[in-house]
Design a protein around this nucleic acid. Sequence first.
RNA 1: UACUCGUGC
Length: 240
Amino acid sequence: NFVYHELMNVYLEFGFVSDSIQCFRLIRKHGIAMPFRQCARLFDHLLKNRTPEMALGFYLEILDHGYPPNVYDFNIMMHMFCKEGKIKDARLVFEEIRKRGLKPSVVSFNTLINGCCRVGEVEECFRLKEEMDKEKILPDAYTYNALIKGLCKDGRLEDADRLLDEMWERGLVPNNIIYTSLINGHCKHGRVELGLEMYGQMLKKGLRPDLFTYNTLVYGLCKKGDIQQANKLVEEMACR
RNA sequence: UACUCGUGC
């Protein structure tokens, strides 16, 4: 019994992760209970060093073993799948949250919305936003940023602007990140003037544009060939 | 306590 647990730890120490998993299975087969901390340790290891597929596979095994499911764990795996563009898998993990009797959190939604917008599935993003409404989960700045990025990418800049207004209406304060996403959208679609306009709005609202914001605008101006204006902006930046 | 967001290189 203890021998198994020790063996599992030793395998893990030396990076023989799959051996460690085999060990876990062996322990179970013998009907010996594996402490949850031990499960968590191995699972963490898979999250950090292995694929989301592997982590998920193992996670389902330990859930089966009685390990208490938690939303954070699912969120992390969703995020890993999204980073690899495997939205389909991210979705499956998302659905698994409810199957296990938990409720997706605002982070769960944000992660999935962000993943969908990354691959250009804007409609899906908004479907999810409606789902949030139904579940009484309030969209936050992360949610709006993902939606705005999705719309920009899709060339729907006017809709993106409208979402920014919606934020103010709902009492949410758009931050630098949101503004920079929007400014970037305008610049990337050849409308640097609109980007500069948003920049002006930031100042008026009392926000302090940061390096990301300035880089975005300066890059846009340079690409357009307006070196004058770019220089002006750099000076302005230096004064702040 | 731990999970999600923006520019360039």
